[in-house]
Design a binder for these strands. Structure first.
Length: 422
RNA sequence: GGAGAGAUGGCCGAGCGGCUUAAGGCGCACGCUUGGAAAGCGUGUGUACGUUAAUAGCGUACCGAGGGUUCGAAUCCCUCUCUCUCCGCCA
């Protein structure tokens, strides 16, 4: 959600930001609605003040046994006026909110121009890509050959875009989740959380998944949503709160299942478990002050990078361009892991600073000092990491010529003595 | 799933159509008092929007949420949400 006062102050800058995302200007329309809304509100408030005075007068007269009929007639006409004004204000508000709710966040000036991922900037590359003495296989070839990655059974159970893991690979997935959580909790100062994976409309709206992306998520028959990411419950946990400034930053992490309908990605990544309806992810969320959020964004991205570094998986950090930056984000770094089997860099983490965009939608604030006025917090979210995709990265980078997979050193403590899968 | 009881300011708690501009208490802040502290006394104490140069004033709204009745609603009616107690079922 946007600050209408910021828009009033500089409508041209607002429209310029939208243009960078390839959207039409809207400032003129919003300002006209805003003007109309304020006029109706002021007029309504006049009537409300009169109603208050009138009710008091009638009350006093009645106690004294006086005639109140003339005043009551005025009351009736007052109410008719108020209803009309209310309806007018509500109608304008409705239109303006409908538009505002669908407008993406303002972009950080550092975000480069560009229409799509081809314009993203490589910020740095870590690690050395392994030299293979054989042709590296893709993860699903390896997994299916091992008999531990089973799309046929998953299809029988649930349809396309699901997977069943067995034995060593199932263990490896669990080890990865455990390892990531332990790292963030033990070394990165995050608080481990267990959260619901079914959430309300409000939680989804506050984290900007609604109304625009309703078709990307699964909805239950009783009107709840399966979370597309733990960002939703973790961030929305502070909705409506006024936090003590001294308690910030809040750093939260959770390992959850995530559910995405993947509407619109028919035909993309159909093989393997790169793009599933259900996957595990360790999510990091930070709630902080406007002053600290930039530094927290860097810090959080480093936390995600550390996972890949400990696992020894080459990656590169991308600064997303305007056209590729998500709806709620002001600035996003993607981490792309090297997948030798695919011979490609693939997204494995996305760390975004939403600034006060989500905070406004969910009314999450903090009090800088005792007695000071509340201000909106800044919220950040990042994958640390997507477990399924990390599993893929481990398999492809640590594969051996015989189709077995060597367990990375960092995961050995979690593997119950299993050092090689297959 | 069944039966019942609730939801009032940071917290406790009264009010159940107009003498409420939400009593009273606790907490907190500031001041007076004191050698210092405690006690005591006094003053203040939320959020949003509008107005405004203003985080100053002033106005309006907010007593779980949303509707309704009324000249007037914390108070009456309807719907919903959540909490608590008991019963049933259950990992």
């Amino acid at each position: 959600m946007h600050d209408i006062r910021a828009l009033r102050a500089d409508p041209a800058a607002f429209d310029a930001d939208l243009a960078r995302r390839g959207l039409e200007p809207v400032a003129q329309r919003l300002l006209a609605w805003d003007e109309e809304r304020r006029q109706a509100q002021t007029a309504l408030q006049d009537r409300q003040a009169r109603r208050k005075a009138l009710a008091r007068e009638i009350g006093m007269l009645k106690r004294e046994g006086g005639d109140t009929s003339a005043l009551e007639v005025e009351g009736v006409s007052l109410r008719a006026q108020m209803e009309a004004l209310e309806e007018q204000a509500r109608a304008v508000e409705r239109e303006s909110t409908a538009l505002l709710a669908n407008l993406p966040n303002r972009l950080d000036p550092a975000v480069p121009d560009g229409p799509d991922e081809s314009a993203n900037e490589i910020r740095h590359v870590w690690g050395t890509r392994r030299e293979f003495t054989f042709t590296p296989k893709q993860h699903f070839e390896l997994g299916e050959a091992l008999g531990q990655m089973d799309f046929a059974t998953a299809g029988k159970l649930s349809g396309a875009r699901f997977v069943v893991l067995r034995a060593g690979l199932a263990r490896l997935a669990r080890a990865l989740g455990q390892f990531m959580l332990d790292l963030h909790v033990g070394e990165h100062d995050f608080v481990e959380m267990q959260v619901p994976v079914l959430v309300t409309d409000d939680a989804m709206y506050g984290t900007d998944k609604l109304p625009k992306f309703a078709d990307q998520s699964f909805r239950t028959e009783d009107g709840r949503w399966l979370i597309p990411t733990a960002e939703v419950p973790l961030t929305a946990s502070v909705a409506g709160d006024i936090l003590d400034g001294a308690s910030l930053p809040l750093r939260m992490t959770a390992l959850t299942q995530c559910f995405r309908s993947e509407a619109g990605s028919a035909g993309r990544d159909v093989r393997g478990m790169l793009r599933q309806h259900q996957f595990e992810k360790v999510e990091m969320v930070c709630v902080t002050t406007p002053e600290q959020s930039e530094a927290e964004h860097e810090r959080m991205t480093r936390c995600a990078e550390t996972v890949l570094e400990r696992l020894g998986i080459p990656y590169r950090r991308m600064l997303l361009c305007a056209g590729d930056t998500g709806f709620g984000a002001a600035k996003t770094f993607d981490l792309e892991a090297w997948l030798p089997g695919q011979d490609a860099w693939r997204e494995i983490s996305s760390c975004s600073n939403t600034r006060d965009f989500q905070a406004r939608r969910m009314n999450a604030r903090f009090r800088p000092q005792a007695g000071a006025a509340p201000a909106f917090v800044h919220t950040l979210n990042g994958s640390g990491l997507a477990v399924g995709r990390t599993l893929i990265a481990v398999m492809e980078n640590y594969q051996n010529e015989d189709g077995s997979i060597t367990v990375p050193d960092a995961l050995l403590p979690y593997m119950g003595g299993l050092a090689r899968i297959g």
